[in-house]
Amino acid sequence: MGLLFAQFAAYHIDRCEAVGRRLAERAEVLAVEVATSSDTYAWEASGQTAAARKLVLFPGSNYDAIAWPRRLWAQFRALRRCDLVLIGIGYNEPDVIALSWLLRLWGVRVAVLSESKFDDKPRRAGFELLKAAALAPYSAAIVGASRHRAYFRFLGFRRRPVLPGYDSIGVARIRAMGERQLAPAGKPFAQRNFAYVGRFVDKKNLTELVEAFALYRAAAGAEARRLVLIGSGVEEAAIRARAAALGVADAIDFPGFLRADEVAQRLAESLALVLPSLEEQWGLVVNEALAFGLPVIASSAVGSADVLVRNLVNGYICEPGQPHSLAAALLAMGADEARWTAMVAASHARAWLGDTDRLADAVDVLLDPGNAEAQARIEAFWRDAACKSGLG
């Protein structure tokens, strides 16, 4: 079987490795990376895979600089002998549309990997019909959680399987990078601070986070904690300016863009992850936070909150555009060590839901629908991700 991604990051290697380990001695897993770099992501070149055979179609090249007909032909030649191909490139790309039809006509089953959900942006009926047509050759979808499944049901996957597991990470790898300092061990409760990890762009809603942090600092007084904003981006100047205007600039740390191991170590010593996004299809940093047992304060727009965060159990879910709500969550999180410790235990209990073994479960069921163990874990996942919309 094959897995296809435009460009590999460590997360993609995690997924290929998990599927390769699960199918060892049953099938060869081909991990296909189209190009080494892209205009969108500044990831370092990925390494080799031990459990899957890795193939880079255009080594040293930029994905966006390769004409789509060249990408199409190279992808088809690499994947045409597979029984099943998981496609992790946008199904709206012209080469991917053609590839999905070519592989299907060649007798290869194709499954789409997607984290799209209906509430990501305004939807237009005509465009949604075009999407449904583009998805016609796919025999299954592997998605994030409840809202993602509901969206694919809407797009025509009524009888075709829609399984969880796409938005997953190698929990063991993340813990190893964080030197296995799992909460509540490690840094004492009183010395832990709030952390954000991600790009500094408008949809991440960081100016509102700064406003909420200022409200929190005013309420918490001498017991107030610091806020660590890890990342970089075009909104950094605006964020710093807002912090200065509100008088909290000296309480916010800007360590910049950090290596993956440095991010893991920062998370391991944090009190909680804060992700206040206005738009967030998933948010893999939530998976990382749970790997260390951290509670999470997330906006309701965050897709991973469907399954990885339970309000008042292992974190708080706030409505975007409500800084007072976010401030109240910060205040509650930092005020009570017993409550925090209980939330840590709940995050540890949910960490398995974000591990790459969930993708391996989905592949197992697609290749062997009678696999009772994998099917049972998928059913347990859906119970934990109880669909709020009723469309699941």
Rank of each mutant, 00 (worst) to 15 (best):
S299N: 03
S299D: 05
S299H: 01
A301E: 14
A301F: 06
A301Y: 02
A301G: 04
A301C: 08
V302E: 04
V302F: 06
G303Q: 04
G303A: 00
G303L: 00
G303S: 04
G303W: 01
S304Y: 07
S304V: 10
S304C: 15
S304R: 02
S304E: 11
A305N: 05
A305E: 07
D306W: 10
D306F: 11
D306G: 10
D306V: 11
D306R: 08
D306Y: 08
V307N: 05
V307E: 10
V307H: 10
V307R: 01
V307Q: 04
V307Y: 15
L308C: 07
L308H: 03
L308W: 03
V309S: 05
V309L: 12
V309T: 11
R310F: 01
R310M: 07
R310P: 01
R310V: 12
R310K: 15
N311T: 12
N311F: 04
N311A: 10
N311D: 15
L312P: 00
L312M: 06
L312S: 08
L312A: 13
L312Q: 14
L312K: 13
V313M: 05
V313K: 12
V313F: 05
N314V: 14
N314I: 12
N314R: 10
G315E: 05
G315V: 05
Y316E: 05
Y316P: 02
I317K: 00
I317F: 00
C318V: 15
C318A: 13
E319N: 09
E319S: 13
P320G: 02
P320S: 08
P320R: 06
P320H: 08
P320K: 03
G321Q: 02
G321F: 09
Q322V: 15
Q322Y: 08
Q322T: 13
P323H: 08
P323D: 06
P323N: 07
P323S: 07
P323E: 05
H324I: 09
H324T: 15
H324Q: 15
H324Y: 06
S325N: 09
S325H: 13
S325I: 13
S325W: 12
S325K: 13
S325P: 00
L326T: 08
L326P: 01
L326I: 04
L326F: 06
A327G: 14
A327P: 07
A328E: 14
A328I: 04
A328H: 09
A328Q: 14
A329V: 04
A329Q: 06
L330N: 10
L330D: 11
L330G: 11
L331H: 14
L331S: 13
A332T: 14
A332Q: 12
A332P: 00
A332N: 07
A332E: 13
M333P: 04
M333W: 06
G334I: 07
G334Y: 04
A335F: 00
A335W: 02
A335N: 08
A335S: 14
A335T: 08
A335R: 13
A335G: 07
D336T: 02
D336F: 00
D336L: 02
D336G: 00
